Amino acid sequence: MLIREWMATDVLTVDENTSMMKALHLMKENKIRRLPVMSHGKLVGIISDRDLKEASPSKATTLDVHELYYLLAEIKIKEIMTKNPITIQPDETIERAAVVMLENKVSGLPVVNGKSELVGIVTQSDIFRAFVNITGIYRGGVQFAFSLDDRPGSIKEVADTVREHGGRIVSILSSTDMAVEGTRNVYIRIRNLPQEDLENLEKTLRQKFRVIYMVKDILKTV
């Protein structure tokens, strides 16, 4: 899945000469945690709520309220922003965005096009939405996990068995990262079945394959 399908395109930005006070107000008012910083139409930095908190006077300050407001109004974003922020392009994958965020310990990335123009922003929340979409959890609450031989056709055998018992598959995820050598871990999510049918399916699957677990997710309490 590509970043352009999940990023926010209506991006609120600030000029590099914007005051700390205004940036704080914008973030609070719009319930956002970061703002791309622009100069003459170009992206020059990014400011986060953490940057603003770290630059703000501590609660132990001896400044009175008027001095405090003056200070916040005088400090410019360009003095505390992260310059030359890490960016990503809209036609890169959401998976790569997740890796970039993880490796660089950031929770959001400005998205720029081939002309280095800001076209959006992608955040951890967007990554979560994409992950939930991939898993299909809203469409099926039952997940089976298998340890299957890493060979052609092994997943099809399981899928065929699921369908023979009336199961409707909504997603299949596969990984070798945490699997025993020569196997792969496969996660199959299906639509909910009547309890008796689900029990029969689970029994058959455990007889024919190596089932790691079966979980029935309940979203009503979320």
Rank of each mutant, 00 (worst) to 15 (best):
R96P: 01
I3M: 00
M178D: 14
I137H: 07
V99N: 13
V142G: 07
N84Q: 14
V122A: 00
M178C: 01
G140F: 08
P152M: 14
G167F: 11
D15L: 13
N192F: 02
R168Y: 07
R168C: 00
S174R: 01
D49F: 04
R189D: 03
G167I: 02
K53Y: 08
I212W: 09
V100R: 03
Q207V: 00
V119M: 05
D91H: 15
K203D: 14
E202N: 10
T221Q: 11
N200L: 11
M21V: 05
L102N: 13
I172A: 09
R50L: 06
D91L: 12
P152T: 12
M1R: 13
M7T: 01
H66W: 14
S174A: 14
T123I: 03
N185Y: 06
E67K: 15
S58Y: 01
L35C: 04
N185C: 01
I169V: 07
S56P: 04
E92K: 11
P36T: 05
K83C: 03
E202D: 12
R210A: 12
E92I: 09
D149G: 14
K42P: 05
D150H: 06
L118A: 03
L63G: 03
R50T: 14
N133Q: 09
L52H: 05
R210T: 15
A60G: 09
Y138L: 15
V100T: 05
I46W: 12
D177S: 12
L52S: 03
L109P: 11
D10Y: 08
V111C: 00
E196L: 08
I134S: 07
N30L: 01
T87I: 08
Y69D: 06
P110L: 11
M81E: 10
A159E: 15
W6S: 00
Y138I: 02
P152W: 13
G41P: 12
L173Q: 14
S58E: 15
E117V: 04
I188M: 12
D91E: 15
S116C: 04
M38G: 04
T61F: 05
N17S: 09
V11C: 07
L198T: 03
D15S: 15
D197E: 13
K28Q: 14
T13W: 14
K59P: 06
M20W: 05
N30P: 09
V211H: 06
V170Y: 02
V44D: 02
T13I: 15
V11R: 02
S147C: 10
R4S: 04
G120R: 11
A179N: 01
K203S: 10
T62D: 14
K76H: 10
V37E: 12
N133S: 15
P36C: 02
T61D: 05
F128A: 11
G140N: 06
I169Q: 03
I86F: 09
D197S: 13
T62S: 11
D10F: 04
V112R: 08
H66T: 08
R34C: 11
W6L: 03
K105I: 02
N192T: 01
S154R: 11
E29I: 08
Y70I: 09
R163L: 10
